[in-house]
Design a protein around this nucleic acid. Structure first.
Length: 734
DNA sequence: TGGTAGAGGCTTTTT
DNA sequence: GCCTCTACCA
């Protein structure tokens, strides 16, 4: 990037008063604008950092902004509030939560804790298995309601069907259980602040007056509850500065609304709009490719990125037979790039789903290439780490029934399911926590159980003593020692070595935490790790290849980017084929991936892929065809039988828009498929077919082989059906 | 209560 | 294809 700000950037930095909307294209220097603006406010306008609040999307982005500010103006970041919505919510609730009945010792439930709680409620209500939706789906529904500011009462008023009613009752009970356990879930960290502000205007006034300037990064990915928080905080001074790019909105599934950015000017009158379209990151070739792809979206403000830098090399195309071959081809590509003088740490492989990392990982291990995966199996989600953390959470907040449930019988102490259920019922009857029941004396159980419970209470009270005296690392160490947890791992798990390593790693993490934090308590440590995302721990300094999802890559950039699995079914994903909005979000996701690249971009797809254990035929993503041919190095499926046809003339998005005539793969790529029977490749995803009973349709999935070859078809007349291809009166259309 | 085998779900993305 | 949960038996 050039040293001086360009005129647009300058304008954004200096437009300090009133609402400002910055439409910042990928690579247009928005992070720089944000930090320069804060520095400008402090240095030129004499604003105290205490009066400035900035929201970032990740903790990592917050840390980076702090570091940059420290470089240009030392000391500035100390009293400044920069953080994610969630971290900021926690801060506010710790100091003011009491006013709405939130104790300052509340526990944060992450997504898995929430899930455990929902399962607990379902089994208590005897609903397990009765609700069509899985606990996971119920959790996600509840989360969406919360993010839309819908309380159980509000939801209930509009619900008539029985299934929904039952889900609402789970929602209601979920909220009660959270309150009883003195716990807040992720969504509460924001929602409860909004509640606080609406119930206690003094609290709202306090913060609204304090924050003279509010800045929001990645504004396109804010959801209604976050918007409500922003609006409240900026309500007094009205100096709201938001930066975003509607083309990079990729979190609608988390409740984010692009409308917030599209309608910002209507929401805040007198908004000044600044557009940043000059790109300082990528070559013109990469920008051309990306611009053409995103131009296919209808719901956007429209922009065109340009650079006065190099034209650059064409976008590489990697075509492979299956995912293993794809992985090997990518390894080769990476090796070539390294030979060309690129560093491993400047190369990233991006993919749509975490599951795709597996094949890659295997090959990279074989190839001896150092790599780091962001987000595959999260450290803090590992079973053994969660066990120890459950002990810790319980020590900080004994009312946390879900954590108690997790560890009551871990390691084994003969306090199993039945005992837990009995205790749970007793606690419910007396309206106290399960720990309370345990401590005040258990009745109605056998003498053996009563004795075991007493032993558990003794163990826990001892640990409480340690927790009262010691800092986080010592407490965790005590938990490990006194529960003999390492022995439990060694005795019962074949892979105990890495598990023991993980719990030791947790102690190390706590030690590192105490070295850098003022508050060294266990509570502070738990709070810190509850909010870390995988991307926050990413270490870009090491000489390693980086692997991550397209979502995780938001806000990052690399010299070289390889996007894997650019296929129908992955990008765009199966679950997003049916609705136009979903499809456009997939396109934005692909666009985000493309625009991460500074110098070299590679797009890769495979003709076959194993998905959930089943081999499926894949076809190149429709998005690939949206990249201009002159930008591509190589051509997509050099297959003469490949036909181009738009099947969505009626506006129904979601049907693959291209199809193969006849049996292209079997006929022309026979050599590659010698190992497979012809039937396996006879139907391909995206192929047009005609069925005697149901008429015309499009193949959505192909699974199995031979007589078991199953084909899922979406029919033009609506409806999706699965057939055994061998027996169904169906054939490909010509 | 604990162990095991089999069933069933899952894999879209995450603070 | 893998992981988690459940049901059933010891």
């Amino acid at each position: 990037m050039s040293f001086r700000l360009n005129d647009r950037q300058q304008e954004a930095v200096q437009a300090t008063e009133g609402p400002v909307l910055v439409i910042a294209g990928a690579g247009s220097g928005k992070t720089r604008v944000l930090t320069e603006r804060i520095a400008y406010l402090v240095q030129e306008k004499g604003i105290h950092p205490y009066n400035i609040l900035a929201f970032t999307f990740t903790n990592r982005a917050a840390r980076e902004m702090r570091e940059r500010l420290e470089q240009s103006s030392p000391g500035i970041s100390e009293r400044l509030w920069v953080g994610t919505f969630h971290a900021t919510g926690v801060k506010i609730l710790r100091s003011h939560g009491r006013e709405i009945g939130v104790s300052d010792r509340f526990t944060i439930y992450d997504a898995d804790d929430s899930l455990d709680l929902i399962k607990d409620i379902l089994s208590r209500q005897g609903l397990h298995g009765q609700l069509i939706r899985s606990p996971r789906a119920i959790r996600d529904q509840i989360s969406r309601w919360k993010n839309d500011l819908m309380t159980p009462d509000l939801v209930a008023s509009g619900v008539t069907d029985n299934l929904k009613k039952r889900i609402v009752s789970v929602y209601r009970e979920y909220e009660r259980a959270l309150a009883r356990a003195n716990a807040l879930d992720f969504d509460d960290l924001i929602a409860r602040v909004v509640e606080l502000f609406s119930v206690h205007s003094q609290a709202k006034d306090h913060f609204a007056r304090r924050f003279q300037y509010v800045l929001v990064d990645e504004f396109q990915d804010t959801n209604p509850i976050q918007m409500a928080l922003i609006d409240a905080l900026a309500s007094y001074h009205k100096n709201l500065f938001v930066v975003g790019d509607d083309d990079q909105s990729i979190y609608s599934w988390r409740g984010a609304k692009v409308d917030h950015i599209l309608n910002f000017e209507d929401l805040y009158s007198g908004t000044r709009v600044v557009r940043l379209e000059q790109n300082y990151r990528s070559t013109q070739m990469i920008l051309d490719a990306a611009n053409h792809v995103i131009a296919h979206n209808k719901g956007r403000k429209g922009k065109n990125l340009w650079t006065d830098g190099d034209r650059g090399e064409k976008v590489g195309l990697i075509v492979s037979m299956d995912e293993e071959t794809e992985a090997m081809n990518m390894l080769n590509t990476v090796n070539t790039l390294v030979t060309d003088g690129h560093q491993l740490r400047d190369i990233a492989v991006l993919y749509r789903t975490n599951a795709q990392s597996r094949a890659l990982e295997d090959v990279l291990k074989l190839g001896g290439l150092p790599y780091q995966i962001i987000g595959a199996v999260r450290f803090y989600e590992r079973m053994e780490v969660r066990d120890i953390l459950a002990y810790c959470k319980l020590l900080v907040n004994p009312a946390d029934n879900i954590s108690l449930k997790r560890i009551l019988n871990v390691p084994r102490r003969a306090l199993g399911k039945t005992t837990y259920e009995n205790l749970s019922v007793m606690a419910g009857k007396n309206n106290v926590s399960i720990m309370e029941i345990l401590k005040t004396g258990v009745s109605g159980l056998g003498t053996a159980q009563i004795k075991r419970c007493a032993e558990f209470v003794k163990l826990f009270t001892d640990l409480e003593g340690v927790a009262a005296r010691e800092e986080a690392p010592a407490v965790i160490q005590a938990v490990l020692d006194e529960t003999k947890y390492r022995d439990y791992l060694r005795d019962g798990f074949p892979d105990s070595d890495s598990r023991v390593e993980n719990v030791d790693e947790l102690v190390t993490a706590a030690e590192i935490f105490t070295e850098t934090s003022e508050d060294r308590s266990l509570r502070a440590f738990l709070e810190e790790i509850a909010l870390v995302a995988d991307i926050d721990t990413w270490d870009e300094v090491q000489g390693q290849l980086t692997l991550m999802t397209l979502h995780n890559a938001k806000g990052l950039e690399f010299d070289c980017v390889i996007i894997a699995g650019v296929e129908e079914g992955l990008v765009p994903h199966y679950n997003s084929l049916d609705k136009q909005e979903d499809l456009e979000e997939e396109r934005r996701l692909f666009y985000v991936g493309m625009t991460r690249a500074r110098k070299r971009l590679f797009l890769s797809y495979a003709n076959m892929r194993r998905r959930m254990g089943i081999i499926e035929g894949g076809s190149p993503s429709r998005f690939l065809y949206e990249v201009p041919e002159e930008c591509l190095d190589g051509s997509i499926a050099s297959d003469e039988n490949l036909l181009f046809a738009e099947t969505d003339s009626d506006g129904t998005a979601g049907r693959p828009m291209r199809f193969f005539e006849g049996r292209p793969r079997a006929a022309t790529q026979k050599r590659e498929f010698e190992d497979y029977s012809q039937e396996e490749v006879y139907y391909t995803v995206g192929m047009r077919v005609i069925h005697n009973d149901f008429g015309k349709g499009v193949v959505r999935r192909v699974e199995g082989a031979g007589e078991n070859l199953r084909v899922t078809v979406i029919f033009d007349g609506g409806g999706e059906r699965k057939f055994l291809a061998h027996y169904a009166p169906m054939r490909p259309m010509n």
